[in-house]
Design a protein around this nucleic acid. Structure first.
Lengths: 208, 208
DNA sequence: TCCTAATAACTGATCAGTCGGTTATTAGCG
DNA sequence: CGCTAATAACCGACTGATCAGTTATTAGGA
């Protein structure tokens, strides 16, 4: 009756959390927070629902872990190379380049972005974390570069934060476009082309 | 026991649908599709839940009505003044101006935008409608203006659709910013200033 | 008096979170 | 080394709450 061969499951406490987070990212970014079922996440992680609760207190807890795991490591890379004293144009191109390649290499980042927007009302605490740890640093990094360009006379006057949003906006739009309309059958968006053409435009338009 | 004075309710079949749609917009844009409760919508509309089903078949049906009601009338206004043969700069400023004032005069439009992004996976049919009736016409309108500018030699070469996204991206970002971060306590975003500064930048950057 | 807008109590399905029980793994002991 | 006791990882059936959608009934209006 009981075949000895393979055990029904294995104890792998060290690997479970990251496996669960990966599975949860998949399910959350497909269905959103509320419609994502813990049973589905558990199945995708190859684990029972009960096991989720060994590693995460609640569904929200798991969701937070997913978002933080997706974001925090990438932020470090962007910060690198901020303090350097290269010409404005170059710095801007470099920064956007890092952003675009981060996006390209991790296609899930669009899903995470969508999640933040979609669930900010339900999980304000999470929106706060995201705002403090990602948005604010990123924006101030870019607007610092712009400010520097203004002081050196390379960039015309204007609110640096708004310039930064003018720079990033189309990237955000592109990401959300992919998440929203490509699954519906819309033409795929050449994000890299968009980024480079827009960068050319904005840099030219910001010249003093 | 029963005081004669005011009746407990009145029959107002003509007014109910729009009242329900207004209430539903409120609740949907605060909680998203799934977490919005029909009981809450009904209460906000001053009506019982059962009454909703006299006017809408399902929750999705109601949701579709909300989105279409919010969008379609505004699209007409934007289309107006498209065919005119004014200089490129002027046309672009006019178009963006109309967009911004539409946004300002109807603060709920950001909520609708968020809903589309958030629920596109759950309600692909809706994303399709939105894509066909709003996004595509709007984008092609703007890129037509740009194409015209290119033909007349006012605008440098480049993909007109991507130029259009470069123009609109920051507006979308601004709208979502409001929806996502202002409720959390972030600084309010001066959307109009953003739009005008960005327009200046992009127009300058697109010059031939 | 009759039609129907509208109500309010109800049903059934779904799902987050719990808990008693089970199995893999490790440590202790001879 | 083997054998066994102890432990921690894991399972999955269950519970209680929530809500979309239904229906029996009431009451407004012509």
């Amino acid at each position: 009756m009981l075949p000895p061969g393979e055990p029904k499951w294995r104890r792998r406490a060290a690997d479970r959390p990251k496996e669960i987070i990966a599975a949860a990212l998949e399910v959350f970014s497909e269905h959103g927070f509320t419609r994502a079922r813990l049973d589905d996440i558990a199945r995708a992680a190859g684990v029972s629902k009960g096991a989720l609760y060994l590693y995460f207190e609640t569904k929200q807890d798991l969701f937070k872990a997913v978002v933080q795991d997706a974001i925090e490591p990438r932020l470090l890379k962007i910060r690198t190379g901020a303090g350097t004293e290269i010409p404005f144009d170059e710095a801007a191109r470099l920064g956007v380049g890092v952003l675009v390649s981060a996006i390209q290499s991790n296609p899930r980042i669009g899903g995470v972005l969508k999640l933040i927007v979609a669930e900010s009302r339900n999980l304000p605490e999470l929106a706060l974390i995201w705002h403090q740890t990602v948005i604010t640093p990123l924006l101030s990094l870019i607007s610092d570069i712009i400010r520097r360009g203004q002081r050196s006379g390379e960039v015309r006057s204007g609110d640096p934060e708004l310039f930064a949003m003018g720079l990033l906006g189309p990237l955000v739009l592109g990401l959300l476009w992919r998440e929203t309309f490509e699954p519906i059958g819309a033409d795929p968006l050449p994000l890299e082309t968009l980024a480079s053409q827009h960068l050319d435009t904005v840099l030219k338009g910001m010249k003093a």
